[in-house]
Simulated scan of single mutants.
Amino acid sequence: MANKSKTSYKGKSAKKNNLMLILFPIILVVLLGLIFVLNNQNEKIVQDEAANRVVDFKLEGQPVLGSSDAKVTLVEFGDYKCPACKQWEETIFPQLKADYIDKGDAQFVFMNYPFLGPDSNTAAYAGEAIHANHPDAFFAFHEALYAAQQDERVQWATPEYLLEVAKKVVPDLNGDEFLKQIQDDTYKEKVQGDFQAGEAAKVSGTPSVFVNGKEYTGNYLDYKSLKAFIDQELSNAK
Rank of each mutant, 00 (worst) to 15 (best):
Q150E: 14
Q150K: 08
Q150W: 00
Q150T: 03
D151L: 00
E152V: 02
E152F: 00
R153M: 09
R153E: 09
R153H: 09
R153D: 08
V154W: 04
V154G: 06
V154F: 08
V154R: 07
V154N: 11
Q155C: 09
W156T: 06
W156R: 07
W156E: 06
A157F: 05
T158H: 08
P159E: 09
P159F: 03
E160L: 06
E160I: 02
Y161I: 08
Y161L: 14
Y161D: 13
Y161M: 15
L162G: 10
L162C: 10
L162S: 11
L163P: 15
L163E: 10
E164N: 14
E164H: 08
E164I: 01
V165G: 05
A166N: 09
K167C: 05
V170P: 03
D172Y: 00
D172V: 00
D172C: 01
L173W: 02
L173C: 11
L173R: 02
L173A: 10
N174M: 06
N174I: 02
D176A: 15
D176E: 15
E177V: 11
E177N: 10
F178K: 06
F178R: 05
L179T: 02
L179G: 08
L179Q: 07
K180M: 14
K180E: 14
I182Y: 04
I182K: 04
I182G: 06
Q183P: 11
Q183H: 03
D184T: 15
D184E: 15
D184N: 14
D184R: 02
D185P: 12
